[in-house]
Amino acid sequence: MHFPVYQINDDDFDDFEDMGTKSKFWYTDSVDGKQYLFKSTHTEDKRGNPIVRQGEDWAEKIACELAKKLGLPHAEYDLANHNGEQGTRSLNFSQKGDSLTFGNTLLEQVFKTSLPEDDKGTQRVQELKYVAALCVIEIVSAPKAWRPTANIKSAFAVFIGYVMFDCLISNQDRHNQNWGMVTDTAGNTSLAPSFDHAASLGRNESDQTRQTKLTTKDKNQTVESYVKKCKSHFYNQGERLKTFEAYQLLSCLAPSAAVEWIERLEAITDEDIKEIVDAVPEAIMSDLSKQFCTAILKANSIRIIEFKDFLLETYLKP
């Protein structure tokens, strides 16, 4: 069974999204009465020229379903179409009166005296130690829908899950406007659900590249080698970290939480992944893309699960 593709009517349009291009807009569905953000794969480059970001729709949908399997707090995504343009729709996760503050604003408000003047407004403000500190002293609480477990109770413990998830899907786009804090009408703060995972799963690679990496005997060109190159937008003392490096550093600060997230990943079977990937319609995602996507998930899962032994031996050994 394939994922449905929801058709969006012009009559349901509410307003354009404040951030980004006019390829994103809010609408209220006339069927269920809920508000969604539509994001088209048809957008613009930095010069305003029209481009199509192939694969953003299926990458976002697969990531959503994997997050659901992990029990990771996440924005809900569906495949959607507006006037012939393919994309995704995302259910508005904010309650009435809630406000969302993005990471870049939090970083500059709280750590403005620690940031070099030249780095303000750039991704270099996203020092990993600052992000960790914000989760602990500013955001504090896990997302509202999260049910605390023995080891995952706080914003920081959940955020470790977000970065592990980035490793799993090879997400390179956890920049400082792709995470944030929700403040409700009573002034209570909590970590926002994870959102915007479209730059993942090798969605932008050519079929030629996919085929090469799936079949090559050159160890430097394999899928296993490919996933190790995934970069994050986190920094450590001014040096940009790979996604797996950022995940390792955060995990060592709360190893019990990290191990629990890994155990959740271990519970996801190959059949679970196959069912999710196969559910994307062939017209949206080619068979070769599905093979490559599945290989990425397998290679990353192995790396993450192997890291569990290090955490157990180093930090949690009786």
Rank of each mutant, 00 (worst) to 15 (best):
Y130P: 06
M19Y: 14
M19R: 15
K39Q: 05
P50V: 00
S23N: 06
L107C: 07
T28Q: 03
A133Q: 11
Q95I: 09
D45W: 04
N104H: 14
A132G: 09
E76D: 13
D32T: 11
A75K: 04
S94Y: 15
A150K: 14
Q95C: 11
E138C: 04
P148W: 01
T149L: 05
D15N: 12
N104G: 13
T105G: 10
S99P: 10
V125C: 02
F13C: 03
D118S: 15
V140N: 01
E60S: 08
F102T: 14
Q54D: 14
E60Y: 05
K24V: 01
L37D: 04
P143K: 00
K22P: 11
K68A: 07
R53W: 09
E108M: 03
T105P: 00
F102W: 10
F25Q: 01
A150M: 11
G48I: 07
H42F: 07
D15V: 14
L91I: 06
I51V: 15
W146C: 05
I152K: 04
G55S: 04
W146V: 03
Y27V: 03
V110A: 03
Q86T: 15
T105Y: 13
E76A: 13
I137K: 15
T113Y: 08
E56Q: 10
P143G: 01
C135K: 01
E117W: 13
Y130I: 04
I62W: 05
D119Y: 10
V52L: 07
L37P: 06
E44N: 13
L134F: 04
N81S: 12
K46I: 12
M19T: 15
D12W: 08
T41Y: 10
I152W: 05
I139W: 02
S141L: 09
T88M: 05
D78A: 03
G48T: 09
T43Y: 00
K112W: 15
F38Y: 07
R147S: 14
D98S: 06
G87S: 04
G87W: 04
L107Y: 05
D57C: 03
Y27L: 06
E85N: 13
L107D: 06
A75Y: 11
Y130L: 03
K68H: 12
T41K: 10
D29C: 02
N81P: 04
H74C: 00
G20F: 07
L115Y: 09
